[in-house]
Design a protein around this nucleic acid. Sequence first.
DNA 1: GGTAGCTTGTGAATGATTTCACAAGCCCCT
DNA 2: AGGGGCTTGTGAAATCATTCACAAGCTACC
Lengths: 211, 211
Amino acid sequence: MKHIAESTVRRLSLYLRFLEEFEAQGQTTISSGELALSGGTTSAQVRKDLSFFGSFGKRGLGYGVRDLIGSIRQILGLHRSWSVVIIGAGKIGAALAQYRGFTQRGFNVVGVYDKDPVRVGATLDGVTVRPDSELERDIQRLKPQIAVLCVPGEAAQPLVDRVTKAGIRAVLNFAPAQLHVPKGVTLRAVNMATELEILAFGLSHPEERAS
Amino acid sequence: MKHIAESTVRRLSLYLRFLEEFEAQGQTTISSGELALSGGTTSAQVRKDLSFFGSFGKRGLGYGVRDLIGSIRQILGLHRSWSVVIIGAGKIGAALAQYRGFTQRGFNVVGVYDKDPVRVGATLDGVTVRPDSELERDIQRLKPQIAVLCVPGEAAQPLVDRVTKAGIRAVLNFAPAQLHVPKGVTLRAVNMATELEILAFGLSHPEERAS
DNA sequence: GGTAGCTTGTGAATGATTTCACAAGCCCCT
DNA sequence: AGGGGCTTGTGAAATCATTCACAAGCTACC
């Protein structure tokens, strides 16, 4: 299979959300144009995105909403469930641990960890915060695939090293630090300050549109 | 000025972070190659990114760390401060209201709003949660430029309509909903579930690398 | 069964972004 | 003062992503 652009994967995730809404409203069939409209893209883009993975529609008719939901879930790897550990039980870590959107989509939070004894023992939406010294043992036992990092910047790299060594295959980093991971591990970063800075740039340069 | 790609702006924000670290360590000068190394990009990319905005280095020498910090801050619009309102004082809204990274970079949280009377009146890091009915009045009085939306998906669009009408020029959306804004308003969205789904795609297709 | 009216799937064309590669310029040392 | 060793800034080339445009195919209806 050819290399797939991140922008394509991001849009597929978006399409999936809309399709679920359309299904909830009882719509059984949808055209690429309709889907494009909700997602703010073009019908050609929708069809091209899907075409990387196969052929899911019927010419003249469009796509079956239910079928396409199934196909995209399969493409994104959501036909199975994934186990996630959250590292850092501060404000953001705690918020994510209790975020419904994860469970809804098959991401199960199997552990929340913190270094600070004050936070250890608290219960967040049914999961108890455990000391970070248990991380390695728990990763080997529960085999989570994904780690979400919500710790201060300086603590992030040592923790990534530990969890990747213990078997984590993907990391979502909310810590304000540039992380390095071994080959074969996928890394994504979300930086709140950067997002605001991109907005500030847009506000400072109204003649252009870096949106 | 030509149109600037979002990827360029995002990298500039990243460079700024590294430069601040280098400055804290007392380094006064830096080459594009060194900067590229910390940011996981290439020296040509660094130079090209900067070249859109002018010429900031000295051939043979590199860039003055302090000067380049100033120049990038100017480019991104961080030479001034920006006022931000946070809408929704749930878990994520509260976490963001107390996030140090914003203030550090000149983003001042001037108000936090919620619909729920139970949350109104609470104090988050010096800012009191106010009822969302005050939004319009406060926006006209305090003239914030940026709104950060942390409300349930279905509440998001009506709130965006209200705050853009009241004068907000940029919106950072954490709500799981596709928003529409009037022309001239900049919109960015961060969707936690999508980020995890991109990771899941990567895990499901190890032969490629949509990172 | 044939035609009209849609909509998909996809090569080709366009547009955007990244990488290459090198002339120009600066500092240091002799 | 001149040469060597770096490093920038930037057109040109290459790569990557999006948009165009149209043949192929399906349904409905007469």
